[in-house]
Amino acid sequence: MDRLLIVEKIEKRYGRAHVLGAKQEVTALLDVSFSIGRGSTLALVGESGSGKSTLALCIACLERPTSGKIVFNRNEITVLDEKQLREVRPQIQLVFQDPARSLNPRFSALELVSEPLLVQGRLDKREREARARALLGQVGIPQEKALQRAEEFSGGQRQRLAIARALSLEPKLLILDEALSALDCSVQAQIANLLMELQGRLGLTYLFITHDFAMAGHLAHEIAVMEQGRVVEIGAADEVLGTPNQEVTRRLIAAMPRLTAEAHAPRAV
């Protein structure tokens, strides 16, 4: 299958100068490699602190990896300069975990969703607004709420706004960094279904970052498991869920809520 994103031996180290003594280094990512096929979903599962979010920022061109190579849509993006990156970024959109922080509270829903188009200088004012209204409709935000400010929406609606905003530039790759984790179950299910529907309709590619194996199994075609900055296991979703090779994977699967756990992964006794 055609690979939209190829990550090869990515490393990310943060240097921190200490007041006394030598520089301290924190390694966030170590020798990470994987790829995602066009139009499919890869779930990246790991405990908190395993480097998932750093990886998301590196792929979204918001952080530079210390070494390694990222190839997006056949272009190597790790060698681009700031100006060239600004042109790649719209094609890779990131939805953050907490929409209360990723949406500027001063903006209205309409402003939020049309902002990417404004920044990109696409369309004129009226067309932008029409497009933003269409997007709001797509994610199920009622039209009469278009002028409300971000802080007046509920958490689930805000995350819908964040997704609508990410979609406004018609990206090829959507990175969802724990985008459902802070929502309650019924809202999670609604948005998960919305994502699947959009994938079917627009042919989107997802990198779905989560610590929840149940959701990963539900949404993803492939699953990669991360631990302490490394990818320790990767494979087709049912393989990883059915025959986990690693201790971490087994631990994370065991942490799934029982009912869903049995539905997806009957445990070998």
Binding site: R89, P90, S102, N104, P116, Q120, L169
Partner: peptide
Amino acid sequence: DFVRAARGFG
């Protein structure tokens, strides 16, 4: 995050 997001769309 909202500044990062804005940088993310260019």
